[in-house]
Simulated assay, not measured.
Amino acid sequence: MDDARFLGIAELTETETPSVAVVVDVMRAFTVAAWAFAQGAEKIVLAESLDEALALKARHPDWVALKDGPLAPGFDTVNSPGLLRSIDLGGRTVVQKTTAGTVGALAVKEAQLVLCAGFVVAEATARLLRTRRSADGVTFVVTGEDGQADEDLACAQYIARRATETGTETEPGTDAAEFLRRAAESRAAAELAQGVRQGVHADDVALCLELDRFPFAMVATLEDSLMVLRPQRIVHPHQDGRP
């Protein structure tokens, strides 16, 4: 994708609002979001702050609130795919507040199309970009480490390449191995594996590196002033639609 831009969150303030934005947080916000949908969540509200997340939870006691780091009063769980995969979220609304991922999505909330992504939804995200790509190009928001997080940049670059390919049997497309290797060797992966970060499950890194685990993209839109994330299933043209 020659017209793709890769920007950190801070750099977004220096540019015009993109028409199409892909917000990437591999470890762990949008891997967690994908798992939430896989566990049955109807939608995810991306909170501006911990206080807003708690206020939303107070108004909607049946909502499930999660955050980075250790579990805190008022929150139901933490931003860990390994921990979330055992929770039944059937029909529930999740409120998510993280250090980087939710911040990045809210920074581009005025864009015409906002996708939130990680490796677990990479191919579905690329397919959606192929069908709805803007003439003005795509802005990839690299959320971690002020835009320097290699796991996020690697994922963004992989999706950007896949968005220009068909991925058919005659054209298999870009090999993900090198991109996944970069993510596996990233600072975030090391911190999760070494227990530097809190609210972590031993399987978190491996779950964040599962390529195309889920068949949906994740689209964020403004609904009644809230940024709401929902899954959008993407069926491969050569598949019959089964999971």
Rank of each mutant, 00 (worst) to 15 (best):
D2C: 02
D3L: 14
D3C: 09
D3Q: 13
A4L: 11
A4D: 15
A4H: 15
A4Y: 09
R5F: 08
R5Y: 09
R5S: 14
R5A: 11
R5L: 03
F6E: 00
F6K: 04
F6N: 04
L7R: 11
L7S: 03
L7W: 15
G8C: 12
I9F: 07
I9S: 04
A10C: 05
A10T: 12
A10E: 11
E11T: 09
E11K: 11
E11D: 15
L12W: 05
L12V: 06
L12S: 02
L12D: 05
T13H: 08
T13E: 07
T13A: 12
E14V: 13
E14A: 13
E14T: 08
T15I: 13
T15N: 13
T15E: 13
E16W: 03
E16V: 14
E16Y: 07
T17R: 11
T17Q: 07
T17G: 11
T17L: 00
T17N: 11
P18W: 00
P18G: 02
P18M: 05
P18R: 04
P18L: 06
P18Y: 00
P18Q: 10
S19W: 01
S19Y: 07
V20P: 13
V20G: 06
V20C: 13
V20H: 12
V20T: 08
A21P: 14
A21K: 05
A21Q: 11
V22P: 15
V22Q: 06
V23Y: 12
V23I: 03
V23R: 04
V23F: 09
V24H: 12
D25W: 00
D25I: 01
D25A: 03
V26F: 04
V26M: 12
V26Q: 05
V26T: 09
V26H: 09
V26N: 02
M27W: 02
M27P: 00
M27D: 04
R28Y: 00
R28L: 13
R28C: 06
R28V: 10
A29F: 01
A29H: 02
A29G: 08
F30D: 08
T31Q: 05
T31C: 09
T31E: 07
T31G: 03
V32K: 06
V32Q: 03
V32N: 02
A33L: 10
A33Q: 07
A34E: 01
A34D: 05
A34I: 12
W35Q: 14
W35L: 11
A36M: 10
A36G: 09
A36C: 15
F37C: 05
F37H: 04
A38I: 04
A38D: 15
A38R: 14
A38E: 15
Q39D: 00
Q39Y: 14
G40L: 02
G40A: 02
G40T: 05
A41Q: 01
A41M: 08
A41T: 07
